[in-house]
Amino acid sequence: MGVVAVLAVVIGFAAFSGPPAASPAGIAAGEVAPAAGELPLSSTYTTVDGAPQDSAATSKTDGLVVHPIRETPVHDAPNGRAIARMEPTQIGDTWLPVIGEDSDWVQVLLPSKPNGSTGWLRSEDVKRANTPYLVTVHLGSKKLELHRDDKVVGQWTVGIGKESAPTPTGRTFLLGAFSDKKQTYSPVILPLGTHSPTHDTFGGGPGTVAIHTWPTDDVYGTATSDGCIRVPADALDQLSEVPLGTLVMIDED
């Protein structure tokens, strides 16, 4: 039987040495092309077709957030069609804001394109928690406010996207917290679940909008970024403590 195993291994080599699968276009890292018949992953790297749009983009929620405890399909309605997959981890643990509920289902904001995408997850596949925080960003006044239990606990003048690459408005959320050796302008970067409306890709990434700090103070109060929200260091320190999934509401005020 040793021969059998050897044969198996030899054939295994042959199978393994076949042509490599086509690499995904556009994104250098993070995006994985789904196999034939497989649902696409909903992540900051992907676009999910058929996701319902957020119909209450200016409304606050009660702070409920959910964490998928297993890989689970994203549906376009309770008991509706599956349009994507959601994984327990993306940039750290996945936490998503709940914007609606129906029996055994929760409706969440998605991290994938297009902006304002939502989807429904089975309640039995998520862990629930509450965040007392809310982040509001006012593009007109270039102010960011951090709320806790409906009280403003911090307010800062921030930098926003320039006219040709504006910061997108609407209701989104804190998707993750990471440090990146290749993006040294900020010790921590807080990506949001939204993307630049003008940059399909940016710097090799998918155009993800983020909150981060900047090495010089002259950017605060200006519209000079490519969509990200630049905040002073003390703001970043506080925002880095805010749970993932917390709503970030961006308006033109």
Partner: peptide, 23 residues
């Protein structure tokens, strides 16, 4: 679904990652 029993969401853990953002 009893929200009264829901725990407070955890603080984020800062990960090492490479995701170019819009700067």
């Amino acid at each position: 679904t009893d929200t009264a029993a829901v725990a407070t969401a955890p603080k984020p853990e800062v990960m090492d990652a490479s995701l170019p953002v819009t700067g």
